[in-house]
Amino acid sequence: MKIKLKISRYDPMGSSGYEPFLQAYDVNISAGTTVLDALHKIKDEQDGTLSFRRSCRSAICGSCAVKINGTPKLACKTQVIPEFEKHSTVIIESLSSLPVIKDLVVDFDAFWHKIHKIEPYLNPKEDDKDLKDKDGWWIIKKEDALKTDDASNCIACGCCYSSCNTMDADREFLGPAALTKAWRFIGDIREGKTRRLSKISDEHGIWSCSRCIECTEVCPKDVRPLTAIENLRSEAIKKGITDNAGVRHVEAMVDSVRKTGKLDEAAMTFRTLGFMRSIGMIPLGLKMELHGKMPLPSLFGTIEGIDEVKKIYDEIEKENLSLHAINREREEK
């Protein structure tokens, strides 16, 4: 059947230099025709000036990612008919958050720059008798390998980068792909002493993720970048890289639940921002108070079964001695 494909065209640098617009093409589509097949058909049969990227045609190389009806997807892995049936239209656009070179081709420089920033190679420990056999080979247990298995499946297609809500508001954010790559190495038991984790704990790093979960939703390889970011956050806390608002925010919540069983917004604000910056929140606080919305700590109360909650904390911390040590240290402060 004939289906109309609407494709974003833009040539910011070329001699023709056309402004962005949507161009419609009627294409013969049969069952199983992928969006990439359709793009090829257009280029071969109708319009040789249309530009897009592709290489493997089988969801391996990651070069054909585009937005299809608003969602970043691999053109070679997405069939046209189901898209049309669901949305009653097929709109194909270039990825978001990356500048267009021409039509569907975007400039990945910023993407790769961020991957490089996390130093995407293993920096192994010097020597670890427990992890090596007598011939010097690393012995990696299955459960250890599984920790970074999802992260290793990333094909760097940029779907997550394009969908990321923090990226949309902060272009310096490292983003889900680079952070997933960081977990690929930080979660590797061979990882030696590196500054990787403290670098990505800085501004525009792990604590800037707003947990919109778009990355995990759109990933065509089920990599689940959000889980990688959560792992990195836990690891940073365990390693004591805690001098930032992101960790203070988490710790305030952890302590609030331990004490009362509930999340106390007032304590969260105060502890995350510190005294000076909390003062800056007073005008908003007063405005909220006018509407009865000031989150005063006393309003939260304590749940009846708080002892059960405490027992759960104790039991988990017994198993995680590093957490236990951090907490004691924090309490002493």
């Binding site: 836990s234 925010h249 988490v250 639940v257 069983g261 079964g305 909650v309």
Partner: peptide, 14 residues
């Protein structure tokens, strides 16, 4: 008790 709002997962999954 509080579900942890996601922040608890950042702290410790289990």
């Amino acid at each position: 008790n509080c579900c942890g709002a996601g922040l608890m997962t950042d702290y410790n999954y289990e």
